[in-house]
Design a binder for these strands. Structure first.
Lengths: 96, 96
DNA sequence: CAATGTACTTAGTAAAACTAAATATATAAC
DNA sequence: GTTATATATTTAGTTTTACTAAGTACATTG
């Protein structure tokens, strides 16, 4: 869900997603490469994201950019609802 | 965390925990026996809960009651902090 | 007496995060 | 110049944990 959310802004490559998740979570979500990339492969298999290779420039090598698909946006909306309901329900149980 | 929380009130047996999680979550958390009981075994191995068999009466068979230990209470407090920080951080990323 | 509800156990599968390492390039340090 | 670090992706293998599914046992209900 977080990956899909970060891809709503613009297309991004895997390494950048790891960094963004780390900084935006204040160091609480530190995915290892194995975790992030296999998550990306699953999301792409689901049809929720699409990848393309950028061309290498003089300064930079080629990167694999991921963008969210319309189905991904739909899935994100559903995941958000599920998450909201779930976390609210955890909150209620924990706050009694 | 939720199991530990439910055991803070009083000691409970596994089947009851399944029911309570279901009703208190309005049907969103419906653990199967295999899931709940193996979670209980893990928690007991950690030393966070302790079990005892009740004696069978004329009406009821023996049940295995679980109670939270002092280490369990400590773990619960830490889990709660971790959960609060984590869910807040998800909220922040999702609400941008 | 068959079916359902309660209550616990166990075996095996599946999903997903983990460790760990390999590959490759660019930059910075010594 | 070589070593170390940062960037960027891939892959192999392990571990954890939830899942399915079935089995045991007893009490209650129809």
């Amino acid at each position: 869900m977080l990956i899909l959310k970060l891809l709503m802004q613009e297309e991004k490559y895997g390494y950048r997603l790891i960094q963004e998740l780390k900084t935006k979570s204040e160091g609480r979500i530190t995915l290892k490469e194995g975790t992030l990339y296999s998550a990306l492969y699953r999301l792409e298999e689901e049809g929720w994201i699409k990848s393309r290779w950028s061309e290498a420039t003089e300064k930079e090598g080629a990167k694999k950019y991921y963008g969210i698909t319309p189905q991904g946006e739909q899935a994100l909306a559903e995941l958000k609802t599920t998450w909201n309901e779930f976390s609210l329900c955890v909150k209620r149980i924990m706050e009694v």
